[in-house]
Design a protein around this nucleic acid. Structure first.
Length: 424
RNA sequence: GGAGAAAUGGCAGAGUGGUCGAAUGCGGCAGUCUUGAAAACUGUUGAGGGUCACACCUCCGGGGGUUCGAAUCCCUCUUUCUCCGCCA
């Protein structure tokens, strides 16, 4: 969420920057400013009145103590009148503050200057690519065929238990998935990320904190009898919210966390070849990294995260590319996002396996996540996160790129984790 | 699930209707002393709104109520602890 004082001082710049998202924000921004103006005027009026009542109350106390009941009762009536006036003003003030809040929820984050203009994922900018795409023969299979051939992932079985998009991993498939989770967590821990295990259900406050709420509840599953809880769409939500309402010390930067969780997404209404197999699921596993950073160094931290993920993909020897998302494809809360895509040879297409973002103060403003600067003033911190990595598509990439006539080879770095070197 | 107790500043812990944003201790920060450190001593130390800066306003788990006035009384929700029951 953007900060009102910041909007006040940078109105034109913000409108221009949001145009990169193909959003004409002028109306909303003007409303924010006028709502805020009105809010402050009312607040001042109320505060002055409250100040008067406070003094009056004090005076009444003294009068009664001194035994002057007559004058005391007189002032009591006066105070009562003042209170009624204040009640009315409070209601109006609350309404205005609410309107302002709702409006602020509608305004997305300002794209970083390096974000390219564009309307869709076709306009994303490739900034890096590495790895060799293997030459596969005519008989190469997409991963869902391989999964069936070697009996390691069962998509039909999952529909019996739950429905489409909830696969069952079996035997070496399950073991390979567990190996990947351990391997990713180990790599992240080695790089200084502290491992967490967090709840897989979140409350509304957490959803608001990282920006899933309001408006995007459609992507989450609700678990609810009286007070609503949501299945996490990503570990970003519980992990980032660990620091909600915190004021941290400057010397505690950087805060680096990693967590493995299942992720649940409704992803309503898309079917077809692009969502076959592991390409898009309602439940999948992911290892996430989250950082809380000083504003001065958050972009260095973002670069560091990108390098870290590159290293993992190098070790796995998967061909990949990195895209800088364009304004039209950039997530609501993000200022700058890099997507990592692995080339799926048998499908002849790129699969997104990681998304690394800097949210700057957009989340921390909602989270009230601050730090004390050198002058003792509290300032909003920056938050960042990235997948390292999303399991199903990495799995798909490995199955497809490592297939041979004799079976699927396991990448060398994973063999200590799997205990086998081939799926056959 | 049943019975009871509690929730106050970074932590511990006073405070049962007015002068309480809140004693005291610990911790933190700054200074004195010291070659340096420790100890001791002195000062300072919650958050948000508002202002050029003050003033001023709000916040004692959340929400609502009583009152001229609430950390303090009432209702409600949440959470924690103790005992009993159940249970991986």
């Amino acid at each position: 969420m953007l900060q009102v004082p910041f909007i006040r001082e940078n109105k034109e710049m913000i409108i221009e920057a949001l145009a990169k998202r193909n959003l004409d924000a002028a109306g909303m921004i003007n409303d924010v400013l006028s709502f805020d103006e009105a809010r402050r005027t009312m607040q001042t009026e109320l505060d002055n009145s409250l100040s008067k009542s406070n003094k009056l109350s004090k005076e009444i106390g003294e009068l009664f103590k001194a035994g002057n009941h007559e004058k005391g009762n007189l002032l009591r009536a006066e105070s009562k009148k003042l209170k009624e006036f204040e009640e009315g003003l409070k209601v109006k003030l609350n309404d205005k503050a609410n309107d302002l809040q709702q409006l602020l929820y509608q305004i997305p984050n300002i794209p970083h200057p390096s974000v390219p203009t564009g309307n869709s994922d076709e306009d994303n900018e490739e900034v890096f690519a590495e790895g060799t795409i293997p030459e596969l023969n005519e008989k190469a299979l997409p991963h869902w065929e391989l999964a069936k051939k070697y009996d390691i992932i069962d998509f039909e079985l999952g529909t019996k238990i739950t429905g489409a998009g909830f696969p069952v991993y079996k035997g070496k498939g399950a073991r390979l998935q567990r190996a990947l989770i351990s391997y990713f967590l180990d790599k992240n821990t080695e790089a200084g990320y502290k491992e967490y295990q967090v709840p897989h259900l979140i409350n509304e406050a957490s959803g608001y904190g990282t920006g899933q709420l309001p408006d995007k509840e459609g992507q989450m599953y609700t678990v609810s009898e009286d007070n609503p809880l949501f299945l996490i769409p990503t570990a970003e939500v519980p992990v980032t919210n660990l620091f909600r309402n915190d004021i941290i010390k400057e010397k505690d930067f950087p805060i680096c966390c990693t967590a493995y969780t299942p992720c649940f997404r409704r992803e309503a209404g898309s079917y077809g070849a692009h969502v076959r197999g592991l390409n898009r699921l309602h439940q999948f596993d992911k290892v996430e990294i989250v950082r809380v950073e000083h504003p001065d160094t958050s972009y260095e931290a973002l670069d560091g995260m990108v390098e870290h993920i590159k290293n993992i993909l190098r070790e796995l020897k998967l061909p990949y590319r990195i895209l800088r998302l364009c304004g039209g494809d950039l997530g609501f809360t993000s200022a700058l996002t890099y997507d990592f895509e692995v080339f799926s040879t048998a499908q002849n297409r790129w699969l997104e396996i990681s998304s690394v973002s800097n949210f700057e103060t957009y989340q921390t403003n909602r989270l009230k996540l601050r730090f004390k600067d050198k002058n003792g003033k509290s300032q909003l911190a920056h938050t960042l996160n990235g997948s390292s990595l999303a399991l199903p598509r990495v799995l798909a990439g490995i199955l497809e790129n490592y297939q041979t006539e004799g079976g699927i080879k396991i990448p060398d770095v994973l063999i200590p984790y799997t205990g086998f070197d081939t799926i056959s």
